[in-house]
Every structure is written in C-alpha cells, then in structure tokens.
Nucleic acid binder design. Structure first.
Lengths: 208, 208
DNA sequence: AATTTATTAGTACATTTGGACTAAATTACG
DNA sequence: CGTAATTTAGTCCAAATGTACTAATAAATT
C-alpha cells in the first residue's frame, strides 16, 4: 500500500482512538496530515471504507498471531501467547471495540463479517479446550454445556475489556496486562491440579 | 415531573435506543413529539442534560431493586432477583451501555458519578459473596483475591452484555434471560455442593 | 383585573459536514 | 518526448445542527 494511504489510516486510527469514531470527520483527518479533504476522499471515499481497511489491519494481525502459536505445542501456553498479543492489538485499535456497535450499525458487510469471525473464534476455543481436557489440563464438564457458557462469557470480556478500562482505569495503557490476567483467570476454576501448576508457572513467565 | 418532560425523556430514550445517542439530535426528538426544538431546549438545555436525567431514572430503578431484595433472606436468591430485574432495566436503557464510553467522554460529572457507583457495586458483591461463603453456599478462595477477580470479571459482563447481544443476537430482547443465566453461571464453579443444588433450583424457579 | 412568570414557537445565523465538480500537478510509460 | 493515468488541491453546494434572540400564548399570583 502506498505511503500516503498508510499515513491516512494511521492518522485516522490515532484520531479515532483519541476522540471516538463519530467525533472525527474526514476533513479533520485530512487537516491533521496536511492534505485536502478531497484528496483523502480520492483515496478512501468515506469513513466506512477507512474503517473497513483498519479492520483488515486487525484481522491481519490476528492471523499473524494464529500463525505464530500454531508452532507452540504447549496448548495452555499458546492461549497465554495469543491473549497477551491479542490484547495489545485490541488496545492499539481500541476505537474499534469502543465504538463497536455504532460502527457495525452503519456497515452491514462488516457486521456480517464480524459474525463469521465470531463463529470461527468460538470454534477455536472449543478445539483448544477439548484438547486441554484430553491433556488433563482442564477437567471434564460437571454440567452440560459448561464450556459453551464459558466461551460465551469470555467472548464478552475480550470484546469489551478495553472499553471498561477506558472508563475505570486512570492509565488504560498500563492496565493491558491486568486485563489479560483477568481474562486468563476465567479458565482457572476449570483447571486440574496439573493444569493449575502450569497456569501459575505461565503467569510468572508472562509477568502477569 | 411534568408530563411534557417525561414525554421528552421517553422519546429521547426510544430514539437513543434505536439509533444511538450520537445519531439523534435535539431537533429530531422535538420533531417526533411535535414540539419546537426551542421548546425542548427550554426544558433541557442540551443532550447532556437529557442523558443525566435518563441516568437518574436508571439509578432510581436500581435503588428500587436494592430495596426489594433487602427483604429477601436467601442471599443467592437475592442475587438472582437483582440480576433478572437489573438486566431488564439495562435492556430498557440499553443506549446507555452501548454508548457508555462516548457519553462519559462528554460528561465528566457523570463519569465521576459512575466511578463512585462502581465502587459501591463492588462492595455489594464483596459483602454478598462473603455472606454466602459463611452460609457454605460458596467455597473458600483457593488462591488470593480469587473473588476480587471474579467481581471484576462480572462487572464487565454486566456492563456490556447488552452491547454484545445487539451485535450477535437476532432478537436481542428475547435474549435477556439467556444473558442473565450466562451472568449467573459465572458463580457456578465457586458453589459448594449445597450451593449448587440451590442454584439449579433457582434456575428453574426463574425459568432460566 | 393586572401583572408577572412559565411555556411554546418562529426565525435567523454561523458552523460543520459530506459530496460533486473542476483543474492543476505529478507520475508512469509507450 | 509526449500522452494518459494517477494524485492532489480548490471551490461550491445542500443539509443538518446548535445556539441566540424575539414574540406570542398560557398559567399563576397578587
């Protein structure tokens, strides 16, 4: 991608993070990087297109994480890695989750895409947990659909921790690790003694 | 409060829920109820004031719930009651949680107030859990601050489940119970056998 | 009844925004 | 070198919004 397009996307991201998507106009983005608004429109015809491209950057980063952890044979550790790295990305693009609903309200294709990604993500956790039950890191379900519930719960946490941190934390940036730990602790009650030992080991390894 | 003010607040709530706070103008609210926009401004000088009043309605409803459950001597049941009733209120005022961050970004006093309420809410859960540990409904902590983590986790869930439901559910209204159940299931791994029996009994009692 | 106060509506204005259109400048390339 | 495509900037327009101001009407008070 040409330099100018990246420059526009970077500035858009910065302004969206600072002021919220709806409070930033095409004109303001253009002004900030010193080009005319018609020029910006030439590259991205509207805000939705900017958002679509920025979302693509998020997806690319997510794919890269999945690629990295596919080499990790320790399943629990792979969850730690993807959490820590994923949470950094979410913070970097926090405007996207903070304005999640209004963005999707105005971009139906993106909304559809998000739903598909969610199904994929659900499946990912399902597989990982099944594997870890097999490895006797996680215990078996004590009631039906217990892990289905867990996955639904952590979906909301991972989607909205960054919004919550903006509201309640004085320095949201420095609380990324705090929320990553809080996320991972969702799994803690389901660990076998063996799994719990690994978990504690990983907590200190990742400095959480 | 006079009829006209309530009418304005009701219409504002409806439009905010439907279109998102930032997509609704003072003029549109006035138009919908057939008064002039200057008239609306006479009653509420800007959108922030509308939001402050609507938030007060939420608080009043929350206080009413707390008053009701204070009579309930079964602690776990009181949690069920406040969850089911509270989730209905959140749905009724869903715009508030969906646009939580942008609302608080533009209303510093409200932001401050929300932080204080959060501290109060944290304390409430702390007390309830301590009581239920005492009643041998909840088990003791197996690691330090385990319940502090739990309370932080459920805070995010209860703040953002309605946002998530708007994104992923076809009929958000009919999924209120689903999310109430999902919320309550956060407590499930921490229940004693006795507590678990009560929990299952309450699930069916509340049709969750 | 007279006067004050509360409520409602109308108008005018400056600003912002997205979008269309044109034209100039730069780059690519045959 | 010259031509076409790409990139950039400037201008104009219509719609929407918040805000201020004025005037009219209704309600309350003395």
């Amino acid at each position: 991608m040409e330099n100018i397009k990246l420059k526009i996307l970077d500035q858009a991201k910065k302004l969206f993070n600072d002021k919220g998507v709806s409070n930033v106009s095409i004109r303001e983005i253009a002004r900030e990087i010193g080009i005319s608004h018609s020029n910006l429109i030439y590259h991205f015809k509207d805000k939705n297109l900017l958002l679509t491209h920025l979302h693509q950057q998020i997806l690319d980063a997510a794919v890269e994480i999945n690629r990295e952890i596919s080499k990790e044979e320790n399943t629990l550790k792979s969850v730690f890695i993807s959490t820590v790295k994923g949470f950094k990305i979410i913070y970097d693009f926090r405007f996207f989750m903070i304005d999640f609903n209004s963005i999707l309200l105005e971009n139906k294709e993106l909304h559809q895409q998000i739903k598909e990604i969610e199904a994929f993500r659900y499946n990912l956790y399902e597989v990982k947990i099944a594997k870890m039950i097999d490895e006797e890191i996680f215990r078996n379900e004590v009631y039906k659909n217990e892990y289905a519930d867990l996955i639904s719960q952590i979906r909301i946490f991972s989607d909205y921790w960054v919004s919550s941190s903006q509201v309640y934390e004085q320095y949201p940036q420095s609380s990324i690790k705090k929320y990553a730990r809080l996320f991972l602790c969702h799994f803690r009650p389901f660990l076998t003694p063996k799994g719990h030992k690994m978990f504690i080991q990983l907590l200190s390894e990742f400095e959480l």
